[in-house]
Design a protein around this nucleic acid. Structure first.
Ligand SMILES: [Mn+2]
Ligand SMILES: [Mn+2]
Ligand SMILES: [Zn+2]
Ligand SMILES: [Zn+2]
Lengths: 140, 140
DNA sequence: CAACAGTTTAGAACTATTCCAAACTATTTT
DNA sequence: AAAATAGTTTGGAATAGTTCTAAACTGTTG
């Protein structure tokens, strides 16, 4: 029922964002949100969709990821050039980035504090603070 | 003389890294290090080189930036997908990122503290902690 | 100065992402 | 419930940043 509730809640959130609950969006939403928090690239999500027999184009995967991000269902995380990760955890938190595998792992916000943030220049305000803890294998 | 000293010091550092001080590398080094700290992309550096009548190919700009990074003269900073910045400041520090302009600005390490860093998983160690403070214009 | 290893280069190739315009579908209107 | 409308999907072309390639070139060493 948690599943059902979050799923119909999702339809509601799409509607609020002015997004129609189409076959493709709902299928992608299941893949994204019916598991624990995930960090995935567009390509990864597209592969998962194909494996799950959800026929959807790459263009639609990109469209959907960006639309979900705009509506606040996802968050975009950048840790390496040429590849965007989308994060199903939209709470305030940070990341471990494993350089050897390319994986991301959440660091809950109570486990890492950023102190003494300087004021941003006049006319601007802080949109977000991202901390990436880059981790590498010992003895590489 | 600060200039001269850092310049010949640079030749030395290249040699240590096993890099020959070629016409191209020295010209690019001037553009990179004879001013205050900078954050630039390969394309930007290439343009500056052409403007300064330094004939050098894009491939060489990329090669050089990566080699300088490996030798510790530069640091690579990733803040948005599809674009790498190279930072002439290799001291421990963090960044403001201005979303409207794409500019980066240093935050010296004594002006921002990361506390309570969790332990990385076994078999791994922290290579670097990057904090990006994303800033946007008020009234966009 | 020869010999060698390292370097540069133009252009092709590659990768992730975005764009396009036509076909399609959910929703609203009649 | 059919028609009209606006939003959505799609394959394929296009783009942008970066990397690769192999041939020509240059710095270093003996
Ligand atoms: Mn994006
Ligand atoms: Mn790189
Ligand atoms: Zn996360
Ligand atoms: Zn910097």
């Amino acid at each position: 029922m948690t599943r059902e509730r979050s799923y119909s809640g999702l339809i509601a959130r799409l509607k609020v964002g002015g997004l129609r609950p189409t076959r493709q969006r709902l299928a992608l939403a299941r893949l994204l949100f019916e598991r624990e928090d995930r960090h995935l690239t567009a390509e990864q999500l597209h592969s998962e969709a194909l494996e799950a027999d959800v026929r959807v184009s790459v263009a639609t995967v990109y469209n959907t990821l960006h639309q979900f991000t705009k509506v606040g269902l996802l968050r975009e995380v950048v840790v390496e050039p040429g590849r965007s990760y989308f994060d199903t955890n939209v709470d305030d938190h940070h990341h471990f980035y494993f350089e050897s595998t390319g994986d991301l792992q959440d660091i809950p916000k109570d486990q890492l504090h950023v102190a003494e943030l300087p004021e941003p220049p006049g006319g601007t305000r802080i949109a977000r603070v991202d901390v990436v803890v880059r981790v590498q294998d010992i003895e590489p």
